[in-house]
Design a protein around this nucleic acid. Structure first.
Lengths: 362, 362
DNA sequence: GTTACTATTGACACCGGTGACAATATAATT
DNA sequence: AATTATATTGTCACCGGTGTCAATAGTAAC
C-alpha cells in the first residue's frame, strides 16, 4: 500500500458510464478505449489483461473493473500478431473410432473453454505422404499455442520432431511413455489387458484366444503383451492358432469371430483388443446361431458406447477418454500453473467393467 | 496483352534463388519479402493472394510463381486484423449423438480443408442461460467467417438473430426450412419417417407403436408426423397408448422398450425415432428373453454405427451426416462460387436401409 | 494533339495489440 | 541530502497484412 495515489484517483465507474454514453453506436471497445478511460497507457492495460505482476494492485483492480464493466475483450488476432503466437489449440488425430475422438474432444474442451483458448480439429491420414508437411503447415500458419496428439499419430516420431523444431508445445496421448514426461499422457493399456486376462482366468477359462488390434497402433502391442502377462500368471499360454490379427474395426471382429468358431479345439473365451472388434465377434456368434456367452466369453477394451449397446453387454476395460482429454489439455495449458505436485497426473489406469459377455467356464 | 512490360521484366526465378541464398536462417517470408523480391508494392502482392482481378495477368503469374517457389504463406492473423475477419469456421452443436457430430465434422472438414479455412468446434448447452451470450462472444471475439449449426441449436431463433445481428454468415442444418434458403440445409426427416411407416405397413403390420424423440428437437416432431402420414396412407392410426415419449437416448429406448411389452394388445412393430432408442428397445427385448424381430419388428432412424453393431442389425432410415456436413460447408464457403445451379443442393433425402430387425407380421 | 477513360500499381495510415527499453516515483541506504 | 534500489508506468516502433485513395500508363474518343 501507500503508493497508489500518485495522481488524483480515477473514478472508474464514472468512466464506464461515460463510455456507455458516448458509444451509442455499439462499437466494441479496444485497448485504446480502455486506456483512455482509465487514463493510463495502453501498455498498462495490456499488463492487466496478461496478468503481469508489474502492476499496482489498486490500478489493476480499477482497470479490471472498467474492463468488466464495458465488456472489453482483447482481440486474439492482434494479440497473436504482436506476440507471435495464437490462442488456438490443435487436436491432431487419426483414430478410426469416432467415439474416442469425440470424448477426447469433449475432455479437451472442458479445460480449454475456461481458459479462453479455442480448439481446432485436424484429423489426418498418417499414410498420406504429405501428412507431415500438412501438419507442419497447420501449426506453423496458425501459430498454434500447442497441439494434442492421439494414437496413432501420437506415436509418430517424425511428427514429434517437427513440432519440437517449430517450438510448438505438444502432448502425446499413448499407451506407453514415448517422450519426456511433461509431454505424455499415458494410458496404461498393458495393465488393463492384464486385468482382462486375470478376469477370464479366474472364471476358469484356459483355452483363451486373442484378437489383436491394428499393428500400426502401439496400443495393440501393449494390449497383447499385457494380456499374455496376465495369462502367464495363471500358467496359461495361447497357442499360435488362438492369436488372430485384427485391425480394430468392427468388420475385422466380425470376420475373425466367425473364424474362431472353426478352430479346433475351440477356445472358451476371447479377448478382443477393442470394443468394436468385440462387437464384431458377438455378431458373428449371433449369425452362427449361438447365444453368447454360452460357448464363448468375450472381453473387449475401451468401454465406449458400443459396449453397452450390444447384447449381451460387453465386459470390457474402461478407457476414460474424456478424462484423458482433460488431462492432456490441463498439461498443455499448464493449468495448475506449475504448482508442484498439485495435480500433475499423466497416467490413467483403465479398469475392468464386468458385464454380461463373460461367464464361468464349464 | 500488350501492356505488360512497363518496366524491364523481372526474373522471378532468380529472385527465388536469391531468397533461398539470403535466408539461411530459415525465416518465414512475409508479404514484404515477396514484394521486395518481385519489385512491386506489398499491395500488389496482397492483390495476388486475394485473387483480385485488378492485377495484370503477367504480373500475377510471376508473383504467384515466386510465392510458390519460396513458400510464402500469408499470416491469417495479420490478414484478419487488417480486414476485420478471420479464416475460421465454427461448428456450434449440442447434439447428444457423438457419431452424428463426428460425421458432420468430417463432412465440413472435407470442404474446409481445401479452402484454407480451419474448423473450430464449439459444443454448447442450449439450456444454459449464458448459452446465447457465450455463442455471441465466440463468434464476435474470434471474428468467425461463419458458423454451422446442427440440431437442436440450429432451431434456436434467438441464436440466429444474434448471428444476423453480428453479420456472421451461418448455415442451419435442420429437418425443416426455418430460414432463408441459402442459410439452410434441410434433411427431409418427414419423408424418411414416411418410408419407415410404409415399410412396416407393407410387411403387414397393423398394430404399430412409435417412440418419439426429444421434444426440444424439431426432428422429433417431423419424424412423428411423417410416420403418421405414412401409416395413414394404409389406413392405420396409432392409439394413444402406442405413442411413447422418448428423448433420443439409449436409456429412454431401453425403458420404453420394456414398457412396450406390457401394452395390451401388444404392437407387432415399433418405430423408434433414432437408432439409439431402437437399440434400447432391442436390448429390452433381449433382457425379456425375446428374440427380435420375432414378436416385435423395429425400425430406427439415422443409420449411425450403432445400427449395424446390434443384433439383429437395425432396419433404419439413413441420414447421410457426412454429406450434410459437406453441403453445409460448401454453402457457407460458397464453393461453386455462385455459379447458378451448379451444385446448390440444400436438401438431403434420407432413405430406407433394410436389415434384420423387421419381418413380416404373422 | 488534347481529353477522357480504363487498367494497373503504389503510398501510407491503420487494424489492436505487445516487446524493448526509458522514465518516473517512492523507499531504502549511506 | 545525495545515492541507489525497487515499483510502477509510459513511449514508440513494429507484428504482417489491408483499405482508401492517389498516381501512372496506356487507349479510345473528340
Amino acid at each position: 500500500m501507500g503508493r497508489n495515489s500518485r495522481k488524483s484517483t480515477i473514478d472508474y465507474a464514472a468512466a464506464a458510464r461515460e463510455w456507455a454514453q458516448a458509444n451509442k453506436e455499439g462499437r466494441k471497445p479496444t485497448i485504446s478505449d480502455v486506456a483512455r478511460l482509465a487514463q493510463v497507457s495502453k501498455k498498462t492495460v495490456s499488463r492487466v489483461i496478461n496478468h503481469s505482476p508489474l502492476v499496482n494492485a489498486a490500478t489493476r483492480k480499477g482497470i479490471q473493473g472498467l474492463i468488466d464493466e464495458i465488456g472489453y475483450q482483447p482481440d486474439p488476432q492482434a494479440r497473436g500478431l504482436a506476440s507471435r503466437r495464437s490462442f488456438l489449440v490443435g487436436l491432431i488425430s487419426d483414430n478410426p473410432t469416432p467415439q474416442y475422438v469425440v470424448s477426447i474432444q469433449l475432455g479437451i474442451l472442458d479445460v480449454v473453454r475456461k481458459t479462453g483458448y479455442e480448439l481446432v480439429v485436424h484429423p489426418c491420414d498418417r499414410n498420406s505422404n504429405t501428412f507431415i508437411e500438412d501438419a507442419r503447415k497447420f501449426v506453423e500458419v496458425q501459430k498454434l499455442y500447442g497441439v494434442i496428439l492421439t494414437p496413432s499419430v501420437s506415436e509418430d516420431e517424425r511428427l514429434a520432431e517437427v513440432l519440437r523444431d517449430l517450438g510448438c508445445a505438444y502432448i502425446r496421448i499413448a499407451s506407453i511413455a514415448l517422450d519426456m514426461e511433461r509431454r505424455m499422457i499415458v494410458t496404461n493399456d498393458r495393465m488393463g489387458a492384464r486385468d482382462a486376462a486375470r478376469h477370464l482366468a479366474k472364471l476358469g477359462h484356459r483355452r483363451i484366444a486373442l484378437i489383436a488390434g491394428r499393428r500400426s497402433f502401439r496400443s495393440s502391442h501393449e494390449r497383447r503383451a499385457g494380456f499374455e502377462e496376465g495369462l502367464a500368471e495363471f500358467g496359461i499360454t495361447m497357442p499360435k492358432e488362438y492369436i488372430l490379427q485384427g485391425d480394430y474395426t468392427f468388420e475385422s471382429g466380425l470376420a475373425l469371430g466367425s473364424a474362431i468358431l472353426d478352430i479346433d479345439p475351440p477356445p472358451t473365451a476371447v479377448f478382443a483388443s477393442n470394443d468394436e472388434m468385440a462387437a464384431g465377434v458377438l455378431q458373428a456368434l449371433h449369425v452362427a446361431g449361438q447365444t453368447p456367452p454360452d460357448a464363448l466369453s468375450i472381453v473387449g477394451f475401451d468401454d465406449f458406447e458400443t459396449a453397452t449397446r450390444v447384447w449381451p453387454r460387453l465386459t470390457t476395460i474402461r478407457t476414460p477418454a474424456r478424462r484423458i482429454g482433460r488431462l492432456a489439455a490441463e498439461r498443455l495449458l499448464d493449468v495448475n500453473g506449475g504448482e508442484e505436485g498439485s495435480s500433475g497426473e499423466n497416467q490413467t489406469t483403465p479398469r475392468l467393467i464386468e458385464r454380461d459377455s463373460t461367464r464361468r467356464a464349464d
